[in-house]
Nucleic acid binder design. Structure first.
Lengths: 158, 158
DNA sequence: CGAAATTAGTTTACATGTCAACTATCTTCA
DNA sequence: TGAAGATAGTTGACATGTAAACTAATTTCG
């Protein structure tokens, strides 16, 4: 069996033990490299991917959200959201608003400056997606989505 | 267009703007959840995925490797490898050996304890791969590998 | 030959993701 | 009613990945 491109990339001496292992590594590596491209894009606008994601979530909701709610929509646990919101607040992109009915609850709202960042990134984000994945074409993109969904289907929710 | 499972998972209000964006998010999410499963497995044996990867690389090479070489085989830049090797060394899983011909070079070697960890994880790692991706079947796995490779093909090397 | 340039690895600072513990606030129940 | 239990968010510690700066060692070149 000829060494796959992935195998050569990794300077791996032995062939993959199984297709599943190759797929897993393929998945991680592709995802990692994809993320890197977005990291670079976001960095040009002064935010990190995780920060951008929070801004995006808040804009999508159209109103301030409690920290617990934000956490439920991201891969990050609550203490991590605290840190993210800290830094977003420091950068003037969000503000914290304590709920008057329940003093435990903190709402996070996007500032106009945060909205500006989002607006500035709307087009570049779309373009980067097309640039990185557009060559797959609609048929293969749908197939990729199908396979990824099929892969996840039996995994228990977290 | 009916909301996809992924969209519902993310409590996303609006449909995906494009198949490319859906695929990107699908990729990141699938990869993330896959990694989580391995994190849990490795944690049971007292190592993190990145540490395990380094042990694996060293065993695969069959001899000690310089830090720069290790870095070239992982997604981590050199200062990060220093930290990883620090912690591996602290745990007694690797040792540092300074090269006598070039005093700048540090070789990293797996200790017998490190080899024990690797051996203990060999089978569980294979089984987890099968468990998480085996249901796709050979045909779909090959197709997934093809699509992921095709996705990456035009991306410049880093 | 010796200074300048290059290289290998470390240190420092930062962001992010995780877990455990903690504080403040609200709800439940005897 | 007031204590116990539950909840929302924060703090602290840790690992990992990144960039910049630094130190030690080797190589290059005038």
């Amino acid at each position: 069996m000829a060494a796959t491109r992935l195998q050569r990339d990794l300077k791996k001496k032995r062939p993959f033990e199984s297709a599943a292992q190759e797929a897993a590594l393929n998945l991680l590596r592709t995802s990692d490299r994809l993320q890197h491209r977005f990291v670079r894009l976001f960095r040009q606008h002064g935010v990190t991917p995780a920060q951008y994601n929070i801004l995006r979530i808040l804009r999508g909701e159209g109103q301030p959200l409690p920290i617990l709610e934000i956490a439920s929509r991201t891969v990050t646990v609550v203490p991590g959201i605290t840190g993210l919101v800290d830094r977003l607040q420091q950068a003037g992109l969000v503000e914290r608003i304590r709920c008057e009915q329940d003093r435990r609850v903190i709402y996070v709202a996007v500032t106009p400056k945060g909205m500006d960042i989002l607006a500035a990134l709307d087009r570049p984000v779309v373009e980067l997606h097309e640039k990185l994945l557009g060559h797959l074409g609609q048929k293969d993109l749908k197939e990729l989505n199908r396979l990824l969904a099929k892969a996840r289907a039996p995994w228990p929710d977290e």
